[in-house]
Amino acid sequence: MTAIARHPGDTLENVMDDKALLDYYEAIERASEQMLQAARDGDWDSVVRLEGACAVLISQLKHAASQRALRPEETRLKTRIMKRILENDAKIRNLAEPWLEDLDRLLAGSPRQLH
Rank of each mutant, 00 (worst) to 15 (best):
M35L: 11
M35H: 05
L36A: 09
L36S: 06
L36N: 09
L36K: 13
Q37V: 03
A38C: 13
A38D: 12
A38H: 11
A38M: 14
A39H: 12
R40Y: 07
D41V: 08
D41E: 14
D41P: 02
G42S: 06
G42C: 05
G42M: 04
D43M: 07
D43E: 11
W44T: 06
W44I: 10
W44G: 08
W44Q: 09
D45W: 10
D45V: 10
D45G: 11
D45H: 10
S46F: 08
V47H: 13
V48H: 11
R49K: 15
R49F: 14
R49E: 15
R49N: 13
R49I: 13
L50I: 15
E51T: 12
C54G: 13
C54H: 14
A55M: 13
A55N: 14
V56R: 10
V56N: 08
V56D: 09
V56F: 05
V56W: 09
L57T: 03
L57F: 07
S59N: 12
Q60L: 11
Q60E: 11
Q60A: 10
L61N: 02
L61Y: 05
L61S: 02
L61M: 05
K62H: 07
K62A: 03
H63P: 02
A64R: 04
A64N: 07
A64P: 10
A65S: 09
S66E: 06
S66L: 07
Q67F: 06
R68M: 09
R68E: 09
R68F: 08
R68V: 08
A69T: 07
A69G: 05
L70H: 02
R71C: 00
R71G: 00
R71L: 00
E73F: 01
E73Q: 04
E74I: 00
E74M: 01
E74A: 00
T75I: 02
T75P: 01
T75E: 04
R76G: 00
R76F: 03
R76K: 01
R76W: 02
L77Q: 03
L77G: 01
K78A: 10
T79K: 03
I81L: 06
M82I: 10
M82Q: 12
M82R: 11
K83H: 05
K83I: 03
R84G: 02
R84P: 04
R84N: 11
I85N: 05
L86C: 00
E87N: 12
E87F: 08
E87K: 13
E87Y: 09
E87G: 06
E87W: 04
N88Q: 15
N88I: 13
D89F: 06
D89L: 06
A90C: 05
A90Q: 09
A90N: 14
